[in-house]
Computed example of a mutant assay.
Amino acid sequence: MQRSVEGQPGSPVNYSCTHSKLNLLLNVNIYSSASPHISLLNLSKNREFRVFFFSVSKVTSSNNRHRPGRYSFLIQFYAVTTASSPMSASKCTRLSGALVKQLLDSVDSILFDCDGVIWRGDQAIPGAPQVINLLKEKGKKVFFVTNNSTKSRKMYADKMTTLGFDVKEDEVFGTAYCCAVYLKTVCKLEGKVYLIGSDAMRQELEAVEIQQTGVGPDHICGKQIDWANVPLDPEVKAVVVGFDEHFSYMKMNRAMQYLSQRDCLFVGTNRDTRLPLEGGKAVPGTGCLLRAIETAAQREAQTVGKPNHFMFDCVASQFGVKADRCLMVGDRLDTDILLGSNCGLKTLLTLTGVSTVADAEAHQKSGCAERQGMVPDYYVESIADLIPALQG
């Protein structure tokens, strides 16, 4: 199937289409005539069809680098029919008994979210280290995918080792790392980043030889006319937003001034609006900071974290992970499970974190195609429920 898409440079374009039994919603980010980036935002869950990949080629361009115009691209979708199986007959099924072994035998790779899945705060979920270590002993590839941008891969690996997990640094895919990879490999950024984020993000950017400015406090001074004319680094070619404990009005203003330049890229780590804590407490998440800057700049950011498929793309490209032989395990329906649905993975909800079975059933009964992507294939009380099958 081929479709032509037009869009304004530097701005996302939502594009929907229907092909046979596939309902697609695409996000087109047109950075330049040479490097359009298209993300599959949503694929209505259908057991007969899955989209494996799509390619993009330029058709026409009515602009140059410095003068915005419109681009037209040809999108080629590739879909395949997949045979149904007993395991895919129903959704939101409690995983127990012989079904556990059947599921594990059907996958070679497993992606785990971290907080609420393998640990809470600084404590491992009971049985979680044993599950991870047993899976590896059984020859499974195990990876960790988290939207938390406050730690580098090394910091996560060190924490996991301390908690008793057998883990290597290159098995960890956080948004700090994935954001750096995205800028380097997809955007092919040449220039600096204005970073609203953590020191861990700075480390990951520098690891791929991208310089940044912005980490740390940025206190307000002067009057409004001074804010509108705040000094800008001419080498900055992208604004990147992650979690930043020093977020301030001046940082939002500085980001807005950079983003007024239409060829300045705009990338966010994730859109999680709340960070759940112990005892039912929560604090604002990165999504709140990102939304504030999007509102001020009147632009929409491209995000790399879950549920965007780019995080899975990072794992798949580096380790040869195949979507139809991969399981996503998480505690949040709107990030973990939706990532799995968007990428054609099997999905398992664990009830040790944020979402509940009632939440999943509400999505399932809603009749809304978009919400079906947040319905897991299976659920367990804890990933420790997998231990008997792994020991058998």
Score class of each variant (00 low, 15 high):
residue 4 S to C: 12
residue 4 S to Y: 13
residue 9 P to Y: 02
residue 9 P to A: 02
residue 20 S to V: 04
residue 22 L to H: 01
residue 27 N to A: 07
residue 30 I to E: 14
residue 34 A to N: 14
residue 34 A to V: 08
residue 35 S to M: 11
residue 35 S to F: 11
residue 36 P to Q: 06
residue 39 S to I: 07
residue 46 N to G: 12
residue 53 F to M: 04
residue 55 S to N: 08
residue 60 T to L: 11
residue 68 P to Q: 15
residue 70 R to H: 09
residue 77 F to K: 13
residue 77 F to T: 12
residue 92 C to Y: 00
residue 94 R to K: 09
residue 108 D to A: 05
residue 110 I to Q: 05
residue 113 D to Y: 04
residue 113 D to M: 15
residue 114 C to I: 14
residue 116 G to M: 05
residue 116 G to W: 01
residue 121 G to M: 02
residue 122 D to H: 11
residue 125 I to W: 06
residue 137 E to Y: 12
residue 152 S to Q: 06
residue 152 S to T: 11
residue 154 K to F: 06
residue 155 M to E: 12
residue 155 M to Q: 11
residue 162 T to N: 15
residue 167 V to W: 12
residue 168 K to F: 11
residue 171 E to I: 14
residue 191 G to W: 01
residue 198 S to T: 12
residue 199 D to C: 00
residue 200 A to L: 01
residue 201 M to C: 05
residue 206 E to Q: 06
residue 211 Q to G: 13
residue 213 T to I: 05
residue 218 D to H: 12
residue 219 H to W: 11
residue 219 H to D: 15
residue 221 C to A: 15
residue 222 G to C: 09
residue 233 D to Y: 03
residue 235 E to S: 15
residue 257 Q to A: 08
residue 259 L to Y: 09
residue 261 Q to V: 04
residue 261 Q to R: 10
residue 263 D to G: 02
residue 264 C to R: 02
residue 268 G to P: 08
residue 269 T to A: 13
residue 271 R to Y: 07
residue 276 P to G: 08
residue 279 G to F: 12
residue 288 C to A: 11
residue 290 L to N: 09
residue 293 I to L: 11
residue 298 Q to D: 13
residue 299 R to A: 12
residue 299 R to W: 08
residue 303 T to H: 04
residue 316 A to G: 02
residue 317 S to F: 06
residue 318 Q to M: 11
residue 320 G to M: 03
residue 335 T to C: 00
residue 343 C to G: 12
residue 346 K to F: 04
residue 357 V to M: 11
residue 358 A to V: 08
residue 363 H to L: 15
residue 363 H to Q: 15
residue 368 C to D: 11
residue 369 A to N: 09
residue 371 R to E: 07
residue 385 D to M: 01
residue 390 L to D: 05
